[in-house]
């Protein structure tokens, strides 16, 4: 399988802690998984996701707190609503739906973190590197 980059947004309270726990448990995952921390998954603007694809991500994963467990009460629900709107938009840019996912990982779920990123990475790797057509990039940046 091809070497790909999976940009993974993690929230400060749950999924970042899940990633730390995966580290503590030495759960291996591909080095192409790259994390960016935000305070809450609710901060993840669709623009940031598109920016990720434009800057070289072959897949984007957003990991928030489980529904009902958001540190900020409802930020993850806002994220969920927003991502539902983003998904059909990605297709218009020629980005396959398997290249994007919103999921939940708690701070105590190191193993789940490993499972979610490995599965997502394998999905994206199976699709291979993302080839954004110039026009798609231009259209988006215009």
């Amino acid at each position: 399988m091809a070497e790909v980059k999976l940009l993974t947004f993690v929230c400060n309270w749950c999924s970042y802690g899940g990633a730390d726990q995966a580290g503590g448990l030495k759960i291996e995952y591909p080095s192409g998984v790259r994390l960016v921390k935000v305070m809450c998954s609710g901060r993840v603007d669709p623009q940031l996701i598109l920016q990720g694809f434009r800057k070289g991500a072959d897949g984007v994963l957003v990991l928030g707190c489980h529904p009902g467990d958001c540190h900020y009460k409802s930020g993850n629900y806002s994220a969920q609503k927003r991502m539902l709107l983003l998904e059909p938009l990605l297709a218009q840019f020629g980005i396959e739906s398997d290249r994007f996912q919103l999921n939940w990982v708690s701070a105590g779920e190191g193993e789940r973190f490993g499972k979610v990123v490995n599965e997502m990475y394998n999905k994206v790797a199976a699709l291979g590197p993302l080839k954004l057509t110039d026009s798609a990039v231009k259209e988006e940046t215009a």
Binding site: M39, G42, R82
Partner: peptide, 21 residues
């Protein structure tokens, strides 16, 4: 400081300190 308002604002008027665009 969750930043949900930042991602929601359609005019880019809201900024999250330390987590700016």
């Amino acid at each position: 400081g969750c930043g949900t308002c930042v991602a929601t604002c359609p005019s880019g008027a809201v900024t999250a300190r330390h987590f700016t665009d």
